[in-house]
Design a protein around this nucleic acid. Structure first.
Lengths: 201, 201
DNA sequence: ACGATTCTTTATCGATCGACAAAGAATTGG
DNA sequence: CCAATTCTTTGTCGATCGATAAAGAATCGT
């Protein structure tokens, strides 16, 4: 043990890395960019985080534990499928359009156009998105079992539908579509779920 | 004029470049990748297309004139807003999931995570997406004026809604969600428009 | 036939990519 | 105080990035 103590705050550096990767993506953020954003010489970054890819994975984990964790939180905290879906979508919009923060979803936009050598990163994020889609589908199936949704509801299709919309919200937010318009569109989308609701459940 | 005639087919080379950029994006495709994909030494590529960025812009234009032109074609050829929207979405899915072709939408995925020096490319594609959103909104407004849609229809919101969904479809297609599931979700989404339709119009 | 023009080939340019070697500085346990 | 350990600093590594200079090859107009 022992040795010279680290002079910088690792958590704080990780937050800065998350913001950099969130803004410009994995390949769009060079080590030189990170050196500049974190205010640390590259050997200090490598000593603390291993490699650029390791740092990115930690940054995504941090994102998902906080700003990007709305889906998980909605699933864990809301009592009905209907409330899970709406809260997830509305918090997505809030996160994707927060002033002074990177726009859009880090998981959607940080590694879409990647060179072959970074396919592992690309697939890793894709799996995160697919897992999110699957968790939404599962929650809707639960809603059917609970008697919240009509028994003939196609939960997989409905889950795909909301997952697709959520990923589209990230694209629109990045393009600068204002949050009011995104919220308005969610109101339209919620009607598809309301139509499947069993009244008084 | 005059001079030695070019030995390769420029159009054919452009198609190969479009496929490469469509698959891996602007920055994900290096000049070395293009040299390999086109089967041409780099000076021949520069002589024929100017620069990597010029080639990319031509490749996107080719994409939009053909595979990626479903929105424009639907808007031009379908008689009602209802038919424009459905055809656009269904052709989008077909294009995004065609076997043996790059998955997803080139305009959505070819330049999302870009280094600062390629911001111009990123913004150029963003403008294409925004223009597409706007054209959908315009078509729905026309539908209201035509008496196809109820007079109190919020065309902007409905247009945002379908544009968002379409961009989400590209993400899902890239992630490997099968086309049948994407078509099923479109059926759900069409109900939002059907609810605004004036019967017998 | 011949100069002008254009394309093809070969070799390479400077800049930047992610990553690290080596040495100096600071702290620990003994 | 000292040896061990860890962090910081300086300098730089080979590979790859997009792009081009220069020379040879092929076709044009005259």
């Amino acid at each position: 043990m022992a040795g010279r103590p680290r002079e910088f705050d690792r958590d704080q550096a990780l937050e800065k890395a998350r913001d950099a990767f969130w803004t410009r993506g994995y390949e769009g953020t060079s080590m030189a960019d990170l050196v500049s954003a974190l205010g640390l010489a590259s050997p200090r970054i490598y000593a603390a985080f291993g490699s650029k890819e390791d740092l990115f994975r930690e940054a995504v984990a941090l994102y998902e534990a906080n700003e990007g964790g709305f889906a998980t939180r909605a699933l864990a905290e809301e009592p009905t499928a209907r409330r899970v879906i709406e809260r997830m979508l509305r918090e997505a919009v809030e996160t994707y359009t927060r002033p002074g923060w990177p726009q859009g979803c880090m998981v959607v936009s940080a590694a879409t156009n990647c060179a072959v050598e970074n396919d592992s990163v690309l697939h890793w994020l894709a799996e995160h998105r697919l897992a999110r889609t699957a968790s939404i589908v599962e929650r809707l199936k639960q809603g059917v079992r609970d008697g919240e949704l009509k028994p003939d509801t196609d939960a997989e299709t409905l889950g795909d539908y909301y997952a697709t919309l959520m990923h589209g919200l990230s694209v629109q937010a990045r393009d600068g579509v204002p949050k009011e318009r995104l919220h308005a569109l969610i109101t339209v989308a919620m009607q598809s779920l309301d139509a499947r609701l069993i009244q008084g459940a």
